[in-house]
């Protein structure tokens, strides 16, 4: 069991970092959460209408759009990173906004990555709603919007899964956020665009594997807590 000692080392490091409320670590968690939540907010604001539209109306190009979303669900993050970098670079189309090396740039690339994922999962959960329940809503006098609302509510478990999957991908993102965010911490260690994942990359580069794993443990714990809160909220709402 001696060879599994590293787990113990990482675990104690993670706990002691958290207990000390280590300011750099807190700022890294803060940036990670803000960026991921903002991307989730924007992503779901885009995904929900698209998912509803694609599952309720028939129009030319619908199949193509669905296919595009399916491809987007597996989009490698490096592609998103390069594209966003080229868009935000000083001489690029959006260079004037000065967004490169900011959390906003990371929000953009994460949004690009998670929106198709959220949309795709939402589509499949909306399609899973029983046709008879949709008909029941109409027969009880629901108009188009009210019918859509019933479908959304009936699919709420799948919708939440979509949001959690999106959040999970956002917070676990490395490739694109390191490219457009730059993994920047100020000289005092306070994070500007450093997230838990990019901090892990840095620690691995420095050879501090246990420290990197400690950050990984914190990341997983964070995802766990967020999931737990979401399920708890859903339970309360469902009652």
């Amino acid at each position: 069991m001696e060879s599994f000692h590293f787990l113990w080392v990482s675990l104690t490091q993670a706990v002691s970092l958290l207990l000390r409320l280590d300011p750099p670590l807190i700022s890294i968690i803060d940036v990670s959460l803000r960026v991921a939540f903002t991307a989730l907010l924007i992503g779901s604001a885009i995904a929900i209408p698209i998912a509803v539209l694609l599952t309720s109306k028939n129009f030319p190009g619908r199949q193509f759009l669905r296919m595009l979303i399916n491809v987007g669900m597996g989009l490698p993050s490096v592609i998103a990173g390069v594209v966003v970098l080229l868009l935000l670079t000083a001489r690029g189309p959006f260079g004037a906004f000065n967004l490169l090396w900011t959390p906003t740039a990371m929000v953009i690339s994460q949004t690009v990555l998670i929106t198709p994922l959220i949309t795709g999962v939402m589509i499949s959960s909306l399609l899973g709603v029983d046709q008879r329940v949709k008909d029941a809503a109409v027969s009880l006098g629901a108009n188009r919007a009210q019918r859509a609302l019933v479908i959304l509510r009936e699919a709420h478990y799948g919708m939440l899964t979509a949001l959690m999957a999106g959040f999970g991908r956002a917070i676990a993102e490395v490739g694109s956020v390191i490219m457009v965010g730059g993994n920047i911490a100020w000289a005092d260690g306070i994070s500007h665009t450093r997230t838990l994942t990019t901090a892990m990359i840095l620690e691995v580069r420095r050879g501090n594997f246990e420290q990197a794993l400690a950050l990984g443990i914190i990341l997983l714990t964070l995802v766990l807590v967020v999931n737990w809160i979401a399920i708890w909220l859903q339970r309360r709402a469902g009652r």
């Binding site: 008879r132 329940v133 029941a136 009880l140």
Partner: peptide, 25 residues
Amino acid sequence: MAMVFEAPALFNTSVAANIAYGLKV
């Protein structure tokens, strides 16, 4: 008009909420 289907096709909420739906909309 209103219709009752062969399968009850209830919404996945409480009994009271199901009954209230028609007036809610």
